[in-house]
Design a protein around this nucleic acid. Sequence first.
DNA 1: CCAATTGTTCAATAACTTTTGAACTAAGGA
DNA 2: TCCTTAGTTCAAAAGTTATTGAACAATTGG
Lengths: 118, 118
Amino acid sequence: MTLPHPNSDQISLPIVLGVLGDPTRLAIVRYLASKEGVPLNCSQFLDLGSKTNLSYHLAKLREAGVTRAEVVGTNRMITLRRADLDARFPGLLDSVIAAAVDDPALPAVGGHDIEVPA
Amino acid sequence: MTLPHPNSDQISLPIVLGVLGDPTRLAIVRYLASKEGVPLNCSQFLDLGSKTNLSYHLAKLREAGVTRAEVVGTNRMITLRRADLDARFPGLLDSVIAAAVDDPALPAVGGHDIEVPA
DNA sequence: CCAATTGTTCAATAACTTTTGAACTAAGGA
DNA sequence: TCCTTAGTTCAAAAGTTATTGAACAATTGG
């Protein structure tokens, strides 16, 4: 009952970039980064799409090696694979997240995802 | 006879990431980075695909704001929009290029694109 | 002017991606 | 055990992207 993940050295740059090149998935990653340390289940992201569609996007992120999903009861706890990504592509995740935080065009989770400065 | 480019503030993070999420385009960017300062015309990249196909990929890069194409006679001189990208997404281009340089799975331009250490 | 060079555009096709709803599995609580 | 909750899987439809070849445009050099 564990889900398939690539190991660190199987994570591919073009695949990661391609997977992040989608507003829904970028919004997921941005939200995960804003809650780093806190494992989140899939339902947290329902603002971004239907249950089925999220299952699809979360699988893409997981299969690319961007996130890890741990099965806990009926939940999947989702975390960013920050250490693996930092080791493989130094600085990439940080710069993507920093840019994503500033992007008002990305969909938001919870309706209060972005702090717009006055 | 000038080609359309987005201006700096129109460059979109998901579009840039999506455009970079393709091995051919990542190889183009890596090669441009390795020749920074030297403007290159499209024919330099023919190792990566047919003339038509390169026209397509180079247009994608240009329309995303990753490259600039200047018309010089019958040539288009292609450069990376490094300053614009650095201003908009600090650190992103550097980390992508650094990771791309280390990626042996990317196609190479000229057959000597990558230095594989002994 | 003519021919060569450089690159684009167009239409067709193939291949992939996204989205949906219905059906399903698996765990947990009453 | 039965019901609910959480999430997956499947197949279909819709949409998008990549690749190709033939035809085109623009410039340069002979």
